[in-house]
Amino acid sequence: MNESKGALTEAVYYILISLYTPLHGYGVIQNVEKLSGGRVKLGAGTLYGAINTLLTRGWIVECGESGERKKEYIITQSGRRAVLDEIDRLQELLDNGRRVVSETTQTQENE
């Protein structure tokens, strides 16, 4: 899918990796905060927009209700592909960034 080749936003990326196990909305908010060490705090509006988009794209699906009758969501196969593509993209960013920075630093030290 062409859509999966674009960069994911931080919120979407964290939501997708949170949904490798079924979670309800607030569970996603808590998990994202935990995964990011408290740095990323999703607001209800941000989660709402992302969940709607991901459902429309078919990257996540509703998978029943939790004990408190809250809708739970889980990542789909196409969602997993999007995550893997994003990991590759991030890896490329890291590799290129590290390579260029270390090469430049070495050149400057040699001079």
Binding site: A11, K41, G45, G49, A50
Partner: peptide, 23 residues
Amino acid sequence: YAVRPARLGKFEINTDIDALIAD
């Protein structure tokens, strides 16, 4: 209209640029 106790901390509904643009 959402009301939240201030003791729970900052209350922001839209925490990313896309959600703010959408709103």
